[in-house]
């Protein structure tokens, strides 16, 4: 049995490995300038279109409150959900590729957890992209509807975004790890993205949805991945944030358990087939 100190040392070691992987992944991001530029220009287009759409819907009235949102808040809400959505790297495609070309066998021999490796590299990339999109989207929204005055909302946004990106990682990992069994994961990735899009509240805050749909969404993990941080960003109510945080933690535990279970079974299958 491992002593307490030994266990702490193991944790510290895997932590520093994770940080090392993250640092490389972060640095690699700088090499993809064109990608970044493309996503930034997409952000510009979509934010502009939606600012126009929401302005029309609100009848140009900046003081009107619909479903708890003013025009300015709803545009900034979109900045936050888009920053999160566009931050997610193509995890499923990567793992599928690793399974197909056998690279996974090499990764499995390394003294580092496979899922842990991907989590570290994912989080570094996602954090980098998130902040870039936040900055670009923020500038655009600032120009379109004015400066934000969300005060504590910023802290809440960052707090809940860490959990949100982790939940997105676990959701995408579930799809990605299915590559152990099926050849194509793009179909499932597609469905996942569409779920984020609708019941995650990417374009439309859940508060604006019909009652029946809101009740369904409350039972799904997707709201914790987009709606929670973005809503907290524009409307700071500390009580809500604590509740959101609790729900996020609950989902993190549940999803992590599912990912671990799938991963164990997948690796078992991989060993049987000899890679």
């Amino acid at each position: 049995m491992m002593s307490f100190r030994g266990r702490m040392a193991r944790y510290a070691a895997s932590g520093s490995k994770g940080i090392a992987v993250g640092r490389i992944a972060w640095r690699q991001q700088l090499a993809y300038k064109t990608d970044l530029l493309l996503r930034a220009s997409f952000l510009l287009l979509i934010l502009f279109v939606f600012e126009q759409l929401w302005s029309a819907a609100y009848g140009g009235d900046t003081s009107k409150v619909i479903g708890g949102f003013t025009l300015k808040q709803i545009v900034w809400y979109l900045v936050f959900t888009e920053a999160l959505t566009l931050a997610v790297p193509p995890l499923a495609a990567r793992i599928e590729e690793e399974v197909k070309n056998g690279e996974i066998a090499v990764r499995l021999t390394r003294p580092m957890s496979y899922v842990g490796y991907h989590y570290a590299s994912y989080m570094a990339e996602a954090a980098f992209r998130f902040f870039v999109h936040l900055a670009v989207g923020g500038l655009i929204a600032w120009a379109l509807v004015g400066a934000p005055a969300f005060g504590a909302g910023w802290a809440d946004l960052l707090l809940l975004s860490a959990g949100a990106l982790s939940i997105l990682f676990l959701l995408h990992a579930i799809v990605a790890l299915s590559a152990f069994w099926v050849e194509e994961t793009s179909g499932m990735s597609f469905v996942l993205n569409k779920l984020q899009f609708t019941v995650g509240g990417m374009l439309l805050p859940l508060d604006l949805m019909p009652e029946w749909l809101q009740r369904i969404c409350a039972w799904l993990p997707f709201q914790a991945a987009l709606y929670f941080p973005a809503r907290a960003g524009v409307q700071a109510h500390s009580a809500d944030v604590l509740r959101d945080l609790a729900i996020q933690i609950g989902w993190l535990i549940a999803l992590a358990a599912i990912v671990t279970w799938i991963y164990r079974r997948g690796v078992g299958k991989l060993h049987v087939n000899g890679g």
Binding site: A57, F197, T198, L204
Partner: peptide
């Protein structure tokens, strides 16, 4: 994909 967009618009126009 397109149907999901239609779904979005239905939610939008219900408001």
């Amino acid at each position: 994909n397109n149907l999901i967009w239609v779904f979005f618009w239905q939610l939008f126009f219900s408001r």
